[in-house]
Design a protein around this nucleic acid. Structure first.
Lengths: 118, 118
DNA sequence: TGTTTATTTGAACATTTACTCAAATAAACA
DNA sequence: TGTTTATTTGAGTAAATGTTCAAATAAACA
């Protein structure tokens, strides 16, 4: 990694070593984008409500969620797809309906923790 | 609040009481939008990095952050403004520079917790 | 087998976002 | 007081987002 120089400001009492140290640390934490992505996934009112509903009721089909949130099935399905793509939720068919649930694992724990459940 | 009916799907074994209960619970949690807003605030790579830098180094001025993240001062300042508007950070002047820090309070705790600091 | 039903999908759209660039601001300091 | 310097601001822009609408899909069931 190239060394950091205080390029932007011409202030002279810059603690360049401190900046270098922080620059190192920020590069060591390489999963910022991944973490930001997960937070953004939860940082939408519709998706957050869906996650909450799944957290407190284990399983729900698409039109249950649409009915509860009073939104179109299509809108819900689009959001479920995003959550499914990121493996936050999983689905299975039961007769005519597709049933969604939170994927077991750390993400599930984060969500339950967020809502102070369990 | 109006009573919930299963309007969307014509499936007949809908547990309407369960839906009503969930509908009630989702309306009781009235701060979804607020919480989603906070998560979205953290759910952006640049802002998340800024928050991390402030969390590990107490105080930084605008061009410190710009230097460390190798971004323009303007871009950083725009993001700082969003964080400041939501009271996630506060600023004070020291000589020629404006110094930012995380606002004391629950949000600060959430951020430190997120990064497993302290 | 044909019809019904739940769900998914893709195009379209308005809105929001994150940044750039240039100009404005405002305090420090000579 | 005038100049320098750090920061903010606003307009502009490309990209992403969240939804609607209509059509496609695919399994269930008669």
């Amino acid at each position: 990694m190239e060394t950091l120089t205080a390029e932007i400001c011409s202030r002279h009492n810059v603690d360049i070593e401190k900046l270098q140290e922080l620059n190192l640390q920020i590069h060591k934490m390489k999963n910022f984008d991944e973490l930001a992505d997960l937070l953004a996934m939860m940082g939408n009112p519709t998706r957050l409500r869906i996650l909450y509903l799944l957290a407190i009721s284990q399983e729900l089909c698409v039109c249950d969620i649409a009915d509860i949130l009073r939104m179109t099935v299509s809108a819900i399905s689009h959001q479920l797809r995003r959550l499914r793509d990121r493996k936050v939720i999983t689905s299975r068919r039961d007769g005519q309906v597709i049933i969604y649930r939170l994927t077991d694992g750390p993400i599930n724990a984060v969500i339950k923790d967020l809502f102070n459940l369990e």
